[in-house]
Computed example of a mutant assay.
Amino acid sequence: MISVAYAADAAHHAVPFYADAAFWVGVAFFLVAGLAFKPVIRALGAGLDARAAKIKARLDEAARLREEAQEMLATYQRKQRDAMKEAEEIIAHAKAEAERLAQQAAKDLDASLKRREAQAMDRIAQAEAAALREVQNVAVEVAISAARDVLASSISADQAAKLVDKAIAELPQKLH
């Protein structure tokens, strides 16, 4: 058996490689595989290119959306700053207005107090004048009463009649 295997092995080696069927089966396999692999590679490449294009489109869309979001954020931040500035201006205006109103109220209060003081002083002056007139009237009445009593006790009826006639005669001169 050894001799048969050796003879077959020797025969096998005696044939050139291109005359062997296994060689041509291998070449045919690689040609078929190569020809079949080329469209598969193209399909895979096209699929990968399409997927890459979709991913690129999504990335571009995401970048566009990100830019829009940043623009909107900047717009809202600007609006917020403007609103804060406006609020600060309103507060400053309100403080200034409150200060002005407080000053005006202080002036009005001061003027009102001065008016009331002047009115009180006028009332006091009127009361003093009234009291003075009343004291003068009382003093005149007391003086007249005292004079009447003194004259009544010291003057006779003839002298009193002469004094009354004299006073009546002088009356027109004193009225003009």
Results as ranks from 00 to 15, higher is better:
8 A>L: 02
174 K>M: 02
127 A>W: 08
81 R>V: 00
87 A>W: 04
16 P>E: 11
104 Q>N: 13
59 L>Y: 04
153 S>N: 07
32 V>D: 00
150 V>C: 01
119 Q>N: 12
37 F>K: 06
153 S>W: 03
112 S>R: 12
93 H>S: 15
163 L>Y: 05
89 E>S: 09
37 F>P: 02
75 T>C: 02
65 L>M: 05
28 A>V: 00
155 I>W: 00
117 E>C: 03
45 G>M: 14
67 E>A: 15
167 A>D: 01
53 A>N: 01
58 R>G: 03
61 E>M: 01
63 A>Y: 03
34 G>W: 01
172 P>M: 10
10 A>G: 04
126 Q>S: 13
109 L>W: 07
29 F>Y: 12
160 A>G: 04
35 L>G: 03
131 A>K: 07
82 D>E: 15
140 V>I: 06
149 D>N: 05
151 L>C: 12
111 A>D: 10
73 L>K: 14
160 A>R: 06
27 V>P: 03
2 I>Q: 10
153 S>M: 01
36 A>H: 00
107 K>S: 15
4 V>H: 10
21 A>F: 08
32 V>C: 09
46 A>W: 08
82 D>G: 04
172 P>D: 15
91 I>L: 14
60 D>N: 02
12 H>T: 10
147 A>S: 12
40 V>L: 13
160 A>S: 01
146 A>Y: 13
66 R>D: 09
20 D>Q: 15
134 E>R: 15
13 H>I: 00
75 T>R: 05
115 R>Q: 11
102 A>G: 03
6 Y>M: 10
119 Q>L: 15
1 M>K: 05
108 D>W: 06
44 L>V: 14
96 A>T: 13
20 D>H: 15
88 E>W: 14
18 Y>R: 01
73 L>T: 08
52 A>T: 03
132 L>Q: 08
162 K>Q: 07
